[in-house]
């Protein structure tokens, strides 16, 4: 039931969105009634609910259609964000692709040579304990010194976040085939490479995709953080930085750009989901218990 499924996704998305708006507005309304205290107590709410801290959802949405300046041109905010988002998306996509390639490469290396696993895995883990905020300026400075375009430096920051879940889950997936399958390939005198392509990689897909979904959203985070620390002229990160500085004047604008970033994150997540369904379709056609029960 392909159509039913799409409809369900659309409906759940809308319901979830309405729920968030309702909570936001409900909280705001309550704060307005009680002067920012929990009802019937003298305990203050964690955030105040005035229009500066929490603009109305409708105002945030309305802001999207306000005109903003983009260089010499003027255009509605949503178009502006879409443009910036497209730029950020490209950075994230390049970063994600590098991260996928590097992560897979490392996983295969670690699979092939036990020594590599023992030697690399600790470093891969350590790499993720370095805070991104500290690392980003280093990558950027290094990139500028070596004449690497900023967009690539930013992608590299996204790569740094994405290769990790890919490497770890791919290694697990590549090691997942059971002895019987491996012995079968051995009985065919299959060389290592053949076993990799016919058995290990296909078996790894089920482990890889959850990590890829994580990596996709992380690549957006990486790209935005990269933009902010590099101080580029473009991208969603730049817009967020700019609107944060002018928060006091128009808080709606910052919220709107944050919503834009969230939508971008959701879109890349959705794309990986779609890719998963295309690639994993091959094992479908099995009526699963959960579907029958539903």
């Amino acid at each position: 039931m392909k159509g039913g499924r799409t409809l369900r996704v659309v409906v759940t998305t809308i319901v979830a969105l309405l729920l968030v708006v309702a909570l936001w507005e409900g909280y705001k309304w309550m704060g307005g009634q009680t002067d920012d205290h929990w009802p019937g107590t003298s305990i203050e709410l964690p955030t105040s609910t005035d229009d500066l801290t929490m603009p109305h959802a409708t105002d945030i949405a309305g802001e999207l259609f306000e005109e903003v300046r983009d260089g010499r041109a003027r255009l509605p905010l949503y178009l502006f964000l879409l443009k910036k988002g497209w730029y950020t998306f490209q950075e994230a996509a390049i970063g994600f692709s590098f991260g996928l390639a590097i992560g897979l490469g490392l996983a295969i290396l670690m699979l092939r040579w036990r020594v590599a696993e023992r030697g690399l895995l600790p470093w891969i883990n350590v790499s993720q304990t370095v805070p991104l905020i500290a690392l980003a300026p280093i990558i950027v400075t290094w990139g500028r010194l070596n004449d690497i375009p900023d967009i690539l430096s930013i992608s590299l920051i996204a790569t740094y976040l994405t290769f990790f879940p890919v490497a770890v889950s791919a290694l697990r997936g590549l090691q997942s085939p059971d002895t019987a399958h491996l012995e079968l390939m051995r009985s065919y005198a299959a060389p290592w490479r053949t076993t990799l392509f016919k058995l290990r990689l296909p078996a790894a897909r089920a482990y890889l995709f959850p990590a890829l979904k994580l990596a996709a959203t992380l690549s957006v985070v990486g790209a935005i953080v990269g933009e902010i620390s590099i101080g580029t002229k473009t991208g969603l990160g730049r817009a967020i930085l700019e609107y944060a500085q002018r928060y006091a004047v128009s808080p709606e604008r910052l919220y709107a750009s944050v919503v834009g970033a969230a939508i971008l994150g959701l879109s890349v997540f959705g794309m990986v989901n779609l890719a998963e369904r295309l690639v994993m379709k091959r094992t479908e056609g099995v009526e699963r218990a959960d579907r029958v029960a539903a």
Partner: peptide
């Protein structure tokens, strides 16, 4: 004989590849 693929092997569990028809 293994390198020449002289034998076929059947295990207790079928051991088919789920992703292949």
């Amino acid at each position: 004989a293994r390198l020449d693929q002289d034998y076929g092997m059947v295990f207790q569990h079928a051991g088919l590849f789920d992703w292949r028809r």
